[in-house]
Design a protein around this nucleic acid. Structure first.
Length: 277
DNA sequence: CTTGGGACCTGGCTGC
DNA sequence: TGCAGCCAGGTCCCAA
């Protein structure tokens, strides 16, 4: 599923499209466009130049020359391919560019959406901080978590608390910080929040260097897969041996989301030593 | 206000 | 082999 590292990779690999003009839009499945009339959407995108491509949280954002922003959210199975424009039964929209190439949005489960907004803040205004920004510090995270009496796993998935983290990287970050997913967000120690903050940054950064994780249908714009899934310690490793201690990785449901963790490395209660520190 | 749960969607898996 | 039924997951929406 495209989370922050996957969307960041898509953005990086689409940067060559900056400067191209959208010649034509084929809306193969009009349901992918939300919040605006389909004809109006096409009319307002066609003829516009792509001035820049950005990412905010899990949104991929095309800044157009008419000052509107085209934002794509991939949800679980969306992907964006840059190439000759071949379509299949899962293709939802296709953009013909002045470079001669096509950008094709593919999304088997049809959860993904495209929106056209004048002010990007309309979509991203409520999102929490970008975890890779320097301004995302343990203090910022601690202040935010202290207001939520929910499992830390649920807090990491809340885009209003931190932007861009999804199910896979929430589990990986908690493993790296030795924190059990059901610990209450507001009861983590100062040291644990510090560890979690740096774990999140490391996990996301490493996943970006590996071009994202190709579980399910995620594929890069050029058709290659990402490699981050091979570095996973817990996500999608139910029953396998923990790479650190050998214990079987467990899977529980947290807020009806499958959650993987190591019961040995991530104890449900903080150790006495740690709480006395 | 906060928290929790269902709906959305469909390919792929399970089990009869 | 065939098929019904369920699950996955991000976000929105509604209820408590």
């Amino acid at each position: 599923m495209p989370e922050l590292p996957e969307v960041e990779t898509i953005k990086n690999e689409l940067l060559p499209c900056v400067g191209a003009t959208v010649i034509h839009v084929d809306l193969i499945d009009s349901k992918v466009v939300s919040g605006i009339n389909v004809e109006k959407f096409c009319r307002m995108v066609e003829g516009q130049m792509v001035k820049n491509i950005e990412r905010r949280g899990k949104y991929l954002i095309f800044l157009l020359s008419n000052s509107y922003s085209l934002a794509i959210h991939f949800r679980m199975t969306g992907s964006l391919l840059l190439g000759s424009g071949n379509i299949d039964r899962y293709s939802r929209a296709r953009f013909r560019l002045s470079s001669g190439e096509y950008l094709t949005l593919r999304d088997p489960r049809r959860f993904g959406t495209m929106k056209l907004v004048k002010v990007i803040g309309e979509l991203t205004g409520k999102l929490g901080p970008e975890p890779l920004d320097e301004s995302f510090t343990p203090e910022v995270l601690e202040r935010s978590l202290s207001r939520h009496r929910i499992p830390i796993k649920a807090a990491l998935l809340d885009q209003n608390i931190i932007a861009g983290i999804g199910n896979m990287y929430a589990d990986e970050s908690l493993f790296a910080a030795h924190i059990h997913p059901l610990r209450k967000a507001d009861l983590l120690s100062h040291e644990e929040v510090q560890s979690l903050c740096s774990s999140i940054k490391e996990i996301l950064q490493q996943a970006i260097s590996n071009k994202g994780a190709s579980v399910d249908t995620y594929i890069r714009p050029g058709g290659q897969i990402g490699m981050a899934q091979f570095k996973f310690n817990v996500a999608h490793r139910y029953g396998k041996a923990c790479r650190v201690c050998g214990t079987s990785i467990q899977r529980i449901m947290v807020r009806s989301r499958g959650t993987y963790f190591c019961p040995e490395c991530q104890p449900s209660q903080p150790s006495i030593q740690r709480s006395l520190m």
